[in-house]
Design a protein around this nucleic acid. Structure first.
Lengths: 236, 236
DNA sequence: GTGTTATTTTAGAAGTATCTAATTTTTTTG
DNA sequence: CAAAAAAATTAGATACTTCTAAAATAACAC
C-alpha cells in the first residue's frame, strides 16, 4: 500500500559536466530499465534493447565505464554508478513528464507519445522541465502508469506482476503498461478499458498460452496470452 | 552504398528522406537567414554565424551541395536550392512556433526562448508541430515579430528598416527584433516598451553614433546607437 | 599590373557511434 | 571433461563534423 521511496543525492548531470550526448543518455536509460528486471545487465541485453550490434554495445559500455557512469566487468555485465543513475533518472523524468504533457496539454493519444518523448527528453532545459512539471501540477505518474522520478531522483516503487500471473478472483488494478509497447496494442488495450487504474479480476486462465477471461471495471473481457504478459497489475 | 548521394525533391524534409542531421538543418537555416541580407552567401559569413572555422563551413557547404540542398560555386558563395529552402523554412517554422509556444503556453520570457527553440526545432514531429500551431491558433508572427512560415513555405514579407535609419517625425511601429539578440538587451528593450507593435516616432538622432531620442507608445525615451540598429521598424 | 592581404579551399587529423569479421571467453551438452 | 555453441570482446573500417596547418585563389592598393 505505501510506496517505497528511495532518495538519491542529486548527482551531477551530463549537462553540468558539459557532456550532452544523446547516445550516452540513451544507454544509461536503457541500462536503468533493464536492471529493473535483472542486474547486472549483459551486453547482449543492452544491444538488443538499443537495437545495435553487441560489438557496438561493448564499445559504448566501455566508454560509459571510462566516464564513471557504469561499473563494468568484462564478460559479466554492467550496473549504473550513482552518477550514471542520476543521469538515467533525469532523462526518465523528462521522458515521462513529456509523455504526460503531450497527452494532457496537446491532445496526443497515449499510443503516440513514446517516440516523440524519446527525442525531446534529451533537449529540454531545466527550466522547461520545471515549467512542464508545474503546468501538470507535479504529477507522480505518466499516462502508462510509470512513476515519474522527482527532481532529486526519488522514485515511487510499485510492486506489480503481469496480469497473466494474477490469481483467479484476486482483485487488482492496472498499474503500468510499457510505454514502448506497440501503438496498436495500446489502442486495443484502451478499447478494452485496460488503462492504468482499471480494476481487474481474472476469472480464468486457459492453459497452453490460451486466453485470459477477466472482468475489467465490471465488464467481462477475454484477452490473449501475449497481451496479458504486457499489462502489469497491482494486487489490492 | 554511399548514403550521401540522395535526391531531394522540393518540399521533402530530411526526416522523410531518413536524414535528420541537426548540423545540416542548422546550416540551411543559417544560409537562409544570411541570404536575406546578401546573396549569395560567403563561406566566411556562414562560418561566423555558425561559430565554426571557415574550413569547417567549406566542408559542410560541399556536403550540402552534394545533397543538392545548395548551389555552390567555389570562392564565390552559396544559395539555397528549392529543396534546401524547403527544409530551412520548415526548421524556421518550428523555431518560431516553439518560441511563441514557450512564451504563450509555458510562461517563458521573450529573452529566454531562443536557445531552447534552437534545439527543439530539430526534433519535433509533424504532428507536434501541427498541435502547437493549432493551440496557438495558427499564428503569423513569433514573439520577436518574425513571420512564421506556413506549412507550404509561404512566408509574409515585411519591409523594415533599422530604427536608426528612420527619418525624424516619421511614424512607424516596431516590426522585428532579432530573436538571437542578447537576452539582456531584449529585457532592456521590453522595459522601454520597444516590443513588436510599439508605435515609435524619432525626434532626434545625435551624430557620431550618438543617442536616438524618440517617442515609444507616447512616452519619450532615449536609446543608444547599438540598440537602434537592432530594432527593425515598419513605416506606416 | 604587380605585390600584398584577405579569403577560401585542401589535406590530414581527431572524436563519436556505429558496423563487420575475427578472436576470445564462457556456457552448455553429450 | 572435452567438444560445440553461445556470448562477448577486439581489431579495423566507415560516416559525420569539427579542427589546424598549408596551399590556392581573389581582392585590393598603389
Amino acid at each position: 500500500m505505501s510506496p517505497h521511496i528511495r532518495t538519491l543525492t542529486a548527482g551531477s548531470s551530463l549537462q553540468r559536466e558539459g557532456l550532452n550526448h544523446q547516445a550516452i543518455e540513451d544507454y544509461l536509460k536503457t541500462i536503468y530499465s533493464l536492471a529493473e528486471t535483472e542486474s547486472p545487465v549483459s551486453t547482449s541485453r543492452v544491444a538488443a534493447a538499443r537495437q545495435v550490434k553487441p560489438a557496438s554495445a561493448t564499445s559504448m559500455i566501455q566508454r560509459l565505464a571510462s566516464l564513471n557512469l557504469v561499473n563494468y566487468e568484462k564478460h559479466y555485465g554492467v550496473t549504473l554508478t550513482e552518477a550514471g543513475r542520476a543521469i538515467a533518472l533525469e532523462v526518465i523524468r523528462h521522458h515521462r513528464l513529456l509523455e504526460l504533457y503531450l497527452t494532457q496539454a496537446l491532445g496526443f493519444g497515449w499510443d503516440e507519445v513514446h517516440e516523440q518523448a524519446d527525442v525531446l527528453e534529451h533537449v529540454i532545459s531545466e527550466k522547461l522541465e520545471e515549467r512542464i512539471a508545474a503546468v501538470l501540477n507535479y504529477p507522480e505518474f505518466d499516462p502508462h502508469g510509470d512513476p515519474i522520478p522527482a527532481k532529486d531522483g526519488a522514485i515511487v516503487s510499485v510492486t506489480t506482476r503481469p496480469l497473466i500471473a494474477l490469481a483467479a478472483d484476486q482483485p487488482a488494478h492496472v498499474a503500468r503498461i510499457p510505454d514502448d509497447a506497440n501503438p496498436e496494442m495500446l489502442r486495443y488495450l484502451a478499447g478494452l478499458g485496460l488503462t492504468p487504474g482499471a480494476r481487474v479480476v481474472v476469472s480464468d486462465v486457459a492453459p497452453f498460452d490460451g486466453p485470459i477471461t477477466l472482468n475489467v471495471n465490471g465488464r467481462p473481457q477475454v484477452v490473449g496470452h501475449k497481451v496479458a504478459t504486457q499489462v502489469l497489475v497491482e494486487v489490492e
